[in-house]
Amino acid sequence: MGEIVPFKKPPRKKPKKGLCQHGFHKWKVVKNTRFDSQKGKLVTRYQCERCGKRKVEAH
Rank of each mutant, 00 (worst) to 15 (best):
P6Q: 13
N32Y: 02
E57M: 02
R45C: 13
I4M: 09
E57Y: 03
F35S: 07
V5A: 03
K55D: 02
K16T: 10
G40C: 07
I4W: 07
K39T: 03
K14N: 05
K55Q: 10
F35I: 13
K9H: 08
V56Q: 11
K9E: 15
L19E: 09
Y46A: 00
H25Y: 10
C48F: 06
R34T: 02
V5P: 04
R45N: 12
T44L: 05
E3F: 10
I4C: 04
K28R: 11
F24N: 12
K41G: 04
G52K: 03
T33H: 09
K13P: 02
R54M: 12
T44I: 08
R45F: 13
H22D: 06
R45T: 14
P10V: 10
E3C: 06
K41C: 12
P6I: 02
D36E: 14
V30T: 06
V56F: 05
E57I: 13
K26S: 06
K31H: 06
N32H: 10
F35C: 06
K53Q: 12
G18C: 01
V43K: 01
C51A: 06
E3R: 10
C20S: 01
K9Q: 10
Q21I: 09
C48V: 07
P10A: 12
K28W: 03
H25Q: 01
C51N: 05
C51Q: 03
K41E: 12
P15E: 15
G40E: 06
K53P: 00
K13G: 09
K9F: 09
C48N: 08
F24W: 11
L42I: 06
E49N: 08
Q47Y: 00
R12W: 01
K8N: 15
R50G: 02
P15G: 10
R54E: 15
Y46F: 15
P15K: 11
R34C: 01
N32Q: 09
H59I: 14
F24R: 08
R45P: 02
K13N: 07
G2P: 15
G23E: 05
W27E: 05
E57R: 05
P10N: 08
V5I: 15
E57Q: 08
R34H: 04
T44V: 09
V56L: 13
A58I: 09
M1C: 03
Q38R: 13
M1Q: 13
A58S: 09
C20E: 04
E3T: 07
H25R: 00
V43D: 00
A58E: 14
Q21G: 08
Q47T: 02
K31R: 07
V43Q: 04
N32I: 04
Q21N: 07
A58L: 13
K55G: 00
G2Q: 04
Y46D: 00
H22W: 15
R34P: 00
G40V: 03
H22V: 15
F35Y: 09
K55F: 03
K53T: 11
H59E: 15
V56D: 06
R45E: 13
H22M: 15
K28V: 05
G18T: 03
